[in-house]
């Protein structure tokens, strides 16, 4: 198969808390079942992770709590500073160099121009005291929009798409239910047509019926917009529903990766087997 160039290519993503020591790698990682070095106390939140996402593709990252999957996503979004690694994004106006080396000014510009993120907790992605329309407008303002009417049109269009009642556009998300807040967050993430969408445990914390609706929404938006997406979740159901390809992480390392169906039907690594057999459904 002749794949197009990946839209996101990250190599050797590393994040550690502590100074590290020469024997760190002899004691940590999936093979040792821990990510904290017993000699020096350094925690390797994520170590040498490679990932690529192709245009229109949805890549999943699955793993238990503390496996480093959210760390990976946060480094890609510049929420956490990477201690090592190389990130490249192929999109209009993006330089062809390691995007971790940019100035903080440029990083912020880039993040606003090419990425959209939806966090597990809506209060991380939204300003709870600012109207929902304002939340969406903030990203447009960052991108240089200076016409209130245009921004309101764009915001109502997005809220309609994400099934938030448009008449509540001038209300703060503080007044909304969890599911609705999550949908506003999705609308905000999509506001300036990102090349890359990052979803961090989007349905965790919602009750199952709302989960199903949010997942439906994401799937539908995926079909309509074809935006390349990274889905981080501990929930195999979410991974199965949204992604075509996925990676399994444990103790900061990738232990298995491949087509989602294949991994879920025929897990190779002992940890993946455990994960699949522990799933409730």
């Amino acid at each position: 198969m002749n794949l197009p160039h990946p839209i996101l290519e990250a190599r050797g993503l590393t994040k550690r808390y502590g100074d590290g020591c020469p024997t760190c790698f002899d004691h940590t990682g999936a093979a040792h079942g821990r990510n904290r070095c017993p000699d020096c106390g350094t925690v390797w939140a994520c170590r040498d992770v490679d990932l690529t996402i192709h245009p229109q593709e949805v890549l999943g990252v699955v793993g238990e709590s503390g496996s480093g999957k959210s760390t990976v996503l946060k480094m890609l979004h510049y929420d956490l500073e990477a201690d090592g690694g190389d990130m490249r994004v192929r999109a209009e106006g993006v330089e062809d160099s390691n995007l971790f080396d940019l100035t903080s000014f440029r990083k912020r510009q880039l993040r606003n121009a090419v990425m959209g993120i939806v966090y597990q907790h809506p209060h991380l992605g939204l300003r709870m005291n600012v109207s929902s329309g304002g939340n969406i407008a903030e990203r447009l303002l960052m991108a240089g929009w200076r016409n209130v009417g245009d921004m309101r049109n764009r915001a109502s269009e997005l809220l309609e798409r994400t099934e938030v009642p448009v008449e509540r556009m001038d209300e703060a998300p503080r007044n909304f239910s969890g599911g609705m807040q999550q949908r506003v967050q999705i609308a905000k993430a999509l506001s300036n047509r990102p090349a890359l969408l990052l979803l961090d445990e989007v349905t965790t914390g919602l009750d199952v019926s709302v989960q199903a609706r949010v997942l439906d929404l994401i799937r539908r938006l995926q079909e309509e917009l074809h935006v390349a997406t990274l889905v981080v979740s501990h929930d195999l159901g979410v991974i199965r529903m949204l992604t075509t390809r996925c990676m399994v992480m444990k103790n900061g390392q990738v232990v298995e990766s491949g087509l989602t169906d294949q991994i879920l039907e025929d897990p190779q690594h002992a940890y993946t087997q455990l994960l699949v057999s522990s799933a409730l459904v």
Binding site: F105, G134, A137, L141, D170
Partner: peptide, 18 residues
């Protein structure tokens, strides 16, 4: 430092909405 004035613009936007 980063000429990041979107918060002020957002403040003005919210004023207009209200």
């Amino acid at each position: 430092a980063e000429a990041d004035y979107s918060r002020m613009w957002l403040h003005l936007y919210e004023d207009i909405v209200k």
